[in-house]
Nucleic acid binder design. Sequence first.
DNA 1: GTATATTCAGACTAAATAATCTGATTTACA
DNA 2: TGTAAATCAGATTATTTAGTCTGAATATAC
Lengths: 145, 145
Amino acid sequence: MSVLFSRQCEYALQAVLYLALKAGKEKITTQELTKRLKIPYHFLGKILQDLTRKGLLASEKGPRGGFSLAMPAEEITLFHIVDAIDGTEFTRSCVLGFPECSEKKPCSVHSTWGGLREDIYTRLVKKNIAQLARDMKKPEYQSKR
Amino acid sequence: MSVLFSRQCEYALQAVLYLALKAGKEKITTQELTKRLKIPYHFLGKILQDLTRKGLLASEKGPRGGFSLAMPAEEITLFHIVDAIDGTEFTRSCVLGFPECSEKKPCSVHSTWGGLREDIYTRLVKKNIAQLARDMKKPEYQSKR
DNA sequence: GTATATTCAGACTAAATAATCTGATTTACA
DNA sequence: TGTAAATCAGATTATTTAGTCTGAATATAC
Ligand code: SF4
Ligand code: SF4
């Protein structure tokens, strides 16, 4: 298997994206998210708690409670989410997982692979989730649900 | 943690690259590889067996035995190695692990992320391991060992 | 032929990640 | 004030991946 981010992180990305799409309206419950995104309920619960602790989401308990973005969607990028869940180690370590090397003396694959992590980073910060949510509403993204 | 390929696969890449570098000469033993590349001995053994079964490496038992490339280094790319260990699923599935989607109705992040898997694929097939081994010998890659 | 160095095979253990379960806490509202 | 709907916390289990161990099979060299 090959994978870019952990499963938790993928779930987090989807969840926050969903929240951004519904931003402004009512709070969103774990139940709604678990149904729409097909993510295991309790696992998702943990992830949302985590994102809340990290300050990305705001939560409210009790009936009519749920989760919402803790800040304007314009200020959140996918990078913030990845950072909160998987951390930012990938911006520093070798994409191929090769052992330590110095920039001065790169290994033979570095000319090809060295740029990938910057590339991934760029994609993560390129758009904020408000833009992504707007994209989601464009006709060409409508809609299989 | 974020990672592109499994640890096994990373080890396999390093090992085959090492073999390419030493190609033509004697067979290389697991022991030499485990020392040079700092990969757990028995784990590496499994991986080399795997690569042999998949037809990428040739093995010989007994004293003076060991492993060597099963074909000219010019015919092997990193993609072949990844294919043998992790499989090629990543060329088809979403890099963010999002659930099934149709190309016709991509999700909102697809414009940014859709290209990444082709990008990775390209990097994997761009150079064969003979070229990579030659790169390794260039002065600018010399040498911390 | 015997000792030795290797791959090979399979069972086993360890660690990391993913997922589940139980119950406590908070809050809205009838 | 009581009930229900939600988050929150922590323990537990399951699954996957990583790594280890033991011994058999095979080939070389003396
Ligand atoms: S030189 Fe580049 S590709 Fe090679 S090990 Fe270092 S970071 Fe990885
Ligand atoms: S549309 Fe693209 S980014 Fe979105 S889920 Fe499908 S493959 Fe992934």
